[in-house]
Simulated scan of single mutants.
Amino acid sequence: MTRPFGLAPTLDEIETLALSALARLPEEFRVHLAGVAVRVEDFADQATLDALGIEDPFELTGIYEGVPVGEKFGAPNGTMPDRIRLFRGAILDEWIARGDESLEHLVAHVLIHEVGHHFGLSDADIHALEDSA
């Protein structure tokens, strides 16, 4: 992504990177993601941070909100639609701090991490899979 000096990628540009990463997932995963919305926001809202016990909004790059695939049958009526929210400010901060990774790769990494939660994986499970890959 070539940008004029000093301009950070927009919400729409981050969303484009995320949707591109989603489209590259194997079909057997994508079929289970058809109803999952992907949203990009500057930062997590205070209610989300409070619910997770996070004080610094730069510490949260993304979140999956919904009922994991394996638990859908027992989900109560009126459950909100599944969504993945990515947080531009925190992603850009991490990208700058890492310095050796493309923004496209980092956005894909955060998105896939949240997709893992959609499939019912814990953070520990996801990190173990990442370490073995």
Rank of each mutant, 00 (worst) to 15 (best):
M1E: 10
T2A: 15
T2P: 06
R3I: 00
G6E: 08
A8G: 15
P9I: 04
L11H: 09
L11K: 11
D12L: 02
D12S: 08
E13N: 03
I14L: 14
I14K: 13
E15T: 01
T16C: 15
A18C: 08
A21N: 13
R24M: 14
R24D: 12
R24G: 10
P26V: 01
E27N: 11
E28N: 13
F29N: 07
F29G: 03
R30S: 04
V31Q: 09
H32W: 13
L33K: 03
L33Q: 01
L33E: 07
L33C: 05
G35W: 11
A37L: 06
V38N: 00
V38P: 00
V38Y: 00
E41K: 09
D42R: 13
F43L: 14
A44D: 08
D45Q: 03
D45Y: 01
A47Y: 02
A47K: 01
L49Q: 05
D50S: 05
D50M: 04
L52H: 08
G53C: 04
E55I: 05
E55L: 10
E55G: 15
D56M: 01
P57D: 02
P57Q: 00
F58G: 08
F58P: 01
F58V: 07
E59P: 03
L60G: 00
L60N: 00
T61A: 15
I63M: 13
Y64S: 08
E65R: 15
E65L: 13
E65K: 13
E71F: 06
E71L: 03
K72F: 02
F73P: 06
G74N: 06
G74R: 02
G74S: 00
A75L: 01
P76N: 03
N77H: 10
T79R: 03
T79D: 02
M80T: 13
M80N: 09
P81S: 09
P81W: 05
R85H: 05
L86M: 06
R88P: 15
G89L: 14
D93T: 10
W95A: 07
A97H: 11
R98S: 00
G99S: 04
E101G: 08
E101A: 15
L103F: 12
L103S: 13
V107W: 11
V110A: 10
V110W: 09
L111F: 10
I112D: 06
I112S: 11
H113P: 10
E114Y: 09
E114G: 05
H117T: 09
H118S: 12
H118Y: 11
H118W: 14
F119C: 05
G120N: 09
G120T: 01
L121A: 05
S122K: 08
S122D: 07
D123M: 09
D123P: 10
D123F: 15
D125G: 05
D125N: 10
A128G: 11
A128W: 07
A128M: 07
A128V: 08
L129H: 04
L129C: 06
E130M: 14
